[in-house]
Design a protein around this nucleic acid. Structure first.
Lengths: 249, 249
DNA sequence: CGCTTTTTTGACCGTCATCAACACCCGTGG
DNA sequence: CCACGGGTGTTGATGACGGTCAAAAAAGCG
């Protein structure tokens, strides 16, 4: 009963029916261990990880894993699927802060604040591994590289957001869209998937909310890239044809 | 000799003449201790801090404290003055990621990477307190709240950058400039300075590079605010007259 | 004081937003 | 199975906001 000691429930705790939760296969054999855990762990370290017996669970397309203001209690690793993290302004405008893919950590906004600062919404039916705060802290004490790994996660997030600020502050619509495609492509490559045949699980509007553009501008830019033979477009499926001319206008 | 053990020098190590360095007054009596250190430290904790004997030094307007790519070796607290952190793109465009004021920490980009990811440039003659990595790690071990305080710094940076993404991705020029002024105002208030009479040490061009606008747009927007009696403008000195109508267009 | 840098202001232009119409895709239910 | 409907995507026409180019005024700085 992982939630027995805590009174308030996060969004996901209210949402996920108990039977959807299940003990994870151990970390040793997890497909995403090389992404979510530090490099070069010893067998002993892995047995400590396995002993943690992390819970995993499904979540449906469109559902919120947590929302801004929810109490922070856990971080998550995406075992399958993808997410968006979003800030919704008081007047309804929404800004997407990031898209998270398989293997990415989720929920670190709110580490050391008591509350999350974004909404995290599933872009497709997804599978999550839950790492409650107290287990994470235990790991940081027991496994030396783990502490540093958490720093790395946070630092990487700072660097990623800085890159996003640079994109939003100084790039044209065309540069934004090509950066976006190349970024997804690279991340797919890092996951052993095709870097040229992309299935985008977000709508044009969501891409726009991410890139600081309107959906029509996103659509038009993609069409222009298609006309120029830089990419192929069929709905949410995009094929990258000419990486060179995507990188250098 | 704080740098004796390390071969490569950072920008500041090459730049600052040795005589400009001096042992700091102890932390117990430091004017910015309530900003840069955790709340509620015991007398014992403070004596540990004092024993660290941090070095402090001056830096001149326009000089780089460090540049992107420099090896990370230390974080800094601003004892007097102000800084900008900047990303310079390959084609020369520059994006300012943040402005740091008195009491703000500096240099955490690069914590856990080996290298800094921004340039940090002094906006005016400034005074810094240097906290080398090994002393910081020592403090995190010895003083319990310190570890959590470092997390807080990093988390705060993630949240600040997310707010910046929201500003750049979804706000008009007018909203960006008023957000900027109100932000500086609040931070001055938190430092016990006047929240209405602001001395901006950055140029209009730098404000533009921060807000994703051209300098002419910044200037025009300030002039419009002046014409509408929301602020007073005399060069880099700005007086906030009508906070209400800056917050709500 | 004189020179450079910064700031302001004007006129004009381009990119992207807005509004609108239509095509498309996909799941749903008849 | 196909028809239907709503969400999604494409494309066009038009315009506003902010960028660009230019020149003069103001403020720093040696």
């Amino acid at each position: 009963m992982p939630f027995a000691e805590s009174p308030a429930l996060t969004t996901i705790e209210r949402t996920i029916p108990h039977k959807a939760r299940s003990a994870a296969k151990n970390c040793t054999h997890c497909a995403i261990r090389h992404i979510c855990m530090p490099m070069g762990l010893s067998d002993e370290d892995f047995s400590k990880l396995d002993a943690m017996n992390f819970t995993s669970f499904k979540i449906h397309r469109g559902d919120a894993l947590y929302r801004a203001g929810d109490p922070f209690r856990s971080i998550y690793a995406i075992k399958a699927g993808s997410f968006k993290t979003v800030v919704v302004l008081s007047d309804g405008r929404e800004q997407i802060i990031g898209f998270q893919l398989v293997g990415d950590p989720l929920g670190m906004d709110g580490l050391s604040h008591e509350h999350h600062i974004y909404d995290a919404i599933a872009l497709e039916d997804s599978l999550l591994c839950m790492i409650p705060l107290h287990k994470l802290e235990q790991l940081c004490r027991d496994i030396k590289p783990m502490q540093r790994h958490v720093y790395r996660w946070m630092c990487a997030e700072i660097a990623r957001e800085a890159a996003m600020i640079t994109l939003l502050g100084s790039m044209s619509a065309e540069e934004r869209v090509s950066s976006f495609l190349l970024n997804i492509s690279q991340r797919m490559l890092a996951r052993g998937r095709s870097p040229t045949d992309l299935k985008l699980h977000m709508t044009r509007e969501e891409i726009g909310h991410y890139l600081g553009l309107k959906l029509e501008t996103v659509s038009r830019t993609l069409s222009r890239f298609r006309d120029e033979q830089r990419i192929g477009v069929r709905g949410k499926t995009i094929r990258i044809i000419d990486v060179e001319r995507l990188q250098h206008p």
